[in-house]
Design a binder for these strands. Sequence first.
DNA 1: CTGAAAGCGCTTACAG
DNA 2: CTGAAAGCGCTTACAG
Lengths: 341, 341
Amino acid sequence: MKNRVTLKDLAKELKLSPSTISRAIGGHPAISDATKKRVKKKAEELGFTPNSIAASFRNKKTRSIGIIVPRIDIHFHSLVISGIEDFAYKNDYNVTIFQSKDSLKREKEITKILQTRMVDGIIGCLSIETENCDHFKKFNKLGVPLVFYDRVPTDFDANKIVINDFESAYTATKHLIKSGCKKIGHIAGSQKTSIFKARLEGYKAALKKYKIPLDESLIMYTKNLSYDEGVSSAKKYLNLPELPDGIFCANDYSAVSVIQVFRKANIKIPEQVAIVGFSNYPISRIIEPNLTTINDRAFQMGESSTKLLIRKIEDENDIIDSEIITLKTELIIRESSKLNA
Amino acid sequence: MKNRVTLKDLAKELKLSPSTISRAIGGHPAISDATKKRVKKKAEELGFTPNSIAASFRNKKTRSIGIIVPRIDIHFHSLVISGIEDFAYKNDYNVTIFQSKDSLKREKEITKILQTRMVDGIIGCLSIETENCDHFKKFNKLGVPLVFYDRVPTDFDANKIVINDFESAYTATKHLIKSGCKKIGHIAGSQKTSIFKARLEGYKAALKKYKIPLDESLIMYTKNLSYDEGVSSAKKYLNLPELPDGIFCANDYSAVSVIQVFRKANIKIPEQVAIVGFSNYPISRIIEPNLTTINDRAFQMGESSTKLLIRKIEDENDIIDSEIITLKTELIIRESSKLNA
DNA sequence: CTGAAAGCGCTTACAG
DNA sequence: CTGAAAGCGCTTACAG
């Protein structure tokens, strides 16, 4: 039963040539409707399924997209992947997925696997360890287009889908200022990562614009913006001579932990301290008070990456070397920062 | 630049036959070390990368696994996928992913795509709409092994990785009883889905075992166990003449919503009502009080599915028709049910 | 409207 | 230890 029916089998059965069968199945206009009907009927009858590997081999196209993400089980990435799969599916591409586990070594291994023609294009988010992107350069020579999202290379021109982290952070901080906060803290992510650097800069820029003096003691630097780091940052705030009246956190996890620590310390949110997060994780709608945050467009990032990638794959006359697409984010105001109401 | 170097090119360059090159690259024992060294050096020099599509075509093996999940962005599934990718990667398989979006129509389409030889085996979780699994039967004839996890077919014998939902629910309910609860409610999922049916049955069995009368008014039936359905179930409890003193919820979302609604109504958890969830979602460690729940082994489910699948793919003399593997779950006791302390 | 032929890049049984 | 040859299943330029 493992010997599948091929075009040749159909041809023999119908006393036609494999060429004709191939064209009939593919809906070629030169083939008569009568023949098409006969072929399709017989194909159904014999349980013919085309061998897409043979077709890929012959056509030098796999209609397959490779994804490299740090981890699938991080909600942000699973949303991006979902957007990628959705858009790819609609365009008859399929999606092969690899996790770098935030390891540069593994990321390099994956690029080696991917260069064996398995995929027509690649979407990637760099591992946290990646500073030098030389291992991605081979794809240029191989004619395999590449799109990066979120954590993108800074050392070479590449197609990138990003959000404006600086501006989003600026907007978030401005929102706190407009809500009446005068002493605003920031919980920052790793300053080795450009997006967290940009969020810190956006925060600083908003303070400057509205003439609020920058107070370094109100900025808590973390490594991974983890829930636990959020807890210890919150405790540090509690040990300050005076609390801030607003905190912009570079992600939702740290924001949630601050809310919980502060509430346990009987600090009223938002009345005493207003909190804003970043990413619009599901938990931001569940935590009490609900968290004001930035919608970072994860799903759309996946869609846009794929749209751009497919264009690069299919447009042979493309003379654009690289594109950077910046998506609009959105400030979602919820209870954790509702001071004016 | 797009014309890649092939074995033939290497052969010409080194005045050897393609056969020898192939064997040298593949590390065949018959080839002399000197030749191997020469070949590998030249391969490096010319930037040879093997064409894995050609190899797949020739070998009739793709070393690729297909996954069909309802949605990638549901945390449970993203964890399973992560386990699958991890195990597959270690065994030199790659993973192609499809979302059914809980649509039977799309699930059927995906099985059609998958039958074109793209993959050596398939791991799937049925869509919520799927009652009849005939569209998976073709893979038996094609010799493509299949493993299901979580939502598995009941209408035909298949390889399945599951947890013991009945027993887990029994354990959870028993825990409430042992903690002193005498009037225990249950928030149930769709009774069309076997796992939620089993959880309800496990709950009932525990009550029976410990001679607690079953009170149907304490069982809230939901469609999707969503957060919002949890909220309305909680409100229904509040409208009862007397509250239960413990509630076993068939997932964590509904449990979290119950905690929040009850706390707003000034009901003490766990003192007045103890709560147990199911799945050990990240939120269960963040909600206050922390949620007692069942670790459903999502990551391990992915690993085990893949391990079983690869065995089925590679073991040609396998005479086992189908296997069902049940993973042990774990009750994680947290504050929401700590009554004895 | 249909067919014969070539070839995509690999692997492997067979021969030496 | 190495090579010549065949073939995996498709597609398409060319011919009629």
